[in-house]
């Protein structure tokens, strides 16, 4: 029983980081209809910001805000430089472009910074744990659960209460009509990218705190998991992305805990099979986008 509760906490925490990443993908997808595979490189950029800030002895309280701002700017710059010139191009062109952006950034990191991982020392209090009854809860684990809740809350407020937020939601349903209402497309798209950058920045910080280093190629795997989570939740649906993230986290932790040792190497295969089974019954994902058929 204790182990079960412990594993549930583990699943929540892992699912939370997947949810943040999937949410970042979903925000951009909902507006532009593209999956940004360069999303992972925002994580890397966040990590390098922390690395260079520490090297330049930037005061500790400024590092986190600075890293998040750089993440948002990087995402916005990506939109401006790589995706805006392709406005109106088909989803395939955008997808290929996002792969290209990702590849170019990785090579630049490798050649201009270092091919080796760079250490990012994390304060010891962040690596600790506290004990609640029989349970050990890691500080980073709790932070990722809290950060997920906070980000989802803030995002919901932003989308429901602000003009820009409502414009993004409207654009997700019907972009041409939204533009006819006098909303500028560039602002909406830029905002969507900046939000996805912020979400990637937060998950980047959590991921860096966990791994203690920043590596030119570190963005690939998280974005792949986020992609799976977003598909599972119903691509383009924000609630779905969050649920998909937690669902994927639960599957991974559950299999890790429950599978007998000889079957363990097939864990990822089994996890993905479960995802396929879900998609067989709900091809549009758990929360399939309602606007999947546009007039």
């Amino acid at each position: 029983m204790e182990i079960f509760v412990q594993q549930c906490v583990n699943a929540l925490s892992l699912g939370g980081t997947y949810a943040l990443l999937a949410l970042g993908l979903a925000v951009v997808f909902s507006v532009l209809g593209m999956i940004n595979f360069a999303h992972g490189e925002i994580l890397t950029i966040t990590g390098y910001t922390v690395f260079f800030s520490l090297m330049l002895a930037v005061p500790a309280v400024l590092i986190i805000p600075l890293a998040l701002i750089v993440a948002m700017l990087a995402a916005a710059a990506m939109e401006r430089v790589a995706f805006r010139p392709l406005r109106g191009a088909g989803p395939t062109s955008l997808l290929i472009t996002s792969f290209a952006v990702s590849g170019i950034l990785q090579v630049l990191f490798q050649n201009l910074i270092s091919a080796r991982p760079r250490p990012v020392p994390i304060p010891d209090f962040l690596t600790g744990a506290f004990t609640v009854g029989p349970f050990h809860i890691g500080v980073i684990q709790s932070l990722s659960i809290l950060a997920t809740l906070a980000m989802v809350g803030l995002l919901t407020l932003f989308l429901k209460r602000t003009l820009l937020g409502m414009a993004i939601r409207a654009a997700a349903v019907d972009f041409p009509t939204t533009r006819l209402m006098g909303i500028r497309a560039n602002r909406v798209i830029l905002a969507a990218f900046a939000i996805s950058g912020l979400l990637a920045g937060v998950s980047g910080l959590l991921w860096i705190a966990q791994r203690g280093s920043v590596d030119p190629l570190m963005g690939f795997l998280p974005v792949l998991k986020a992609f799976i989570a977003a598909i599972l939740g119903g691509i383009g649906n924000l609630t779905g992305a969050v649920i998909g993230g937690f669902f994927l986290g639960a599957i991974e932790i559950g299999l890790q805990a429950a599978l007998p040792e000889p079957v363990q190497p097939f864990r990822d295969a089994i996890a993905l099979t479960l995802v396929v089974v879900v998609l067989l019954y709900r091809p549009q994902g758990l929360f399939g986008a309602v606007h999947s058929v546009r007039p």
Partner: peptide
């Protein structure tokens, strides 16, 4: 990190892959 956070103090043996500055910056 997760091992130590859970209060497990058993010694850990690794191999050459962790011969990297990151390991020495972990605290």
């Amino acid at each position: 990190k997760q091992l130590r956070a859970a209060g497990i103090t058993a010694p850990v043996i690794g191999s050459d892959g962790i011969d990297s500055p990151t390991t020495f910056a972990l605290g």
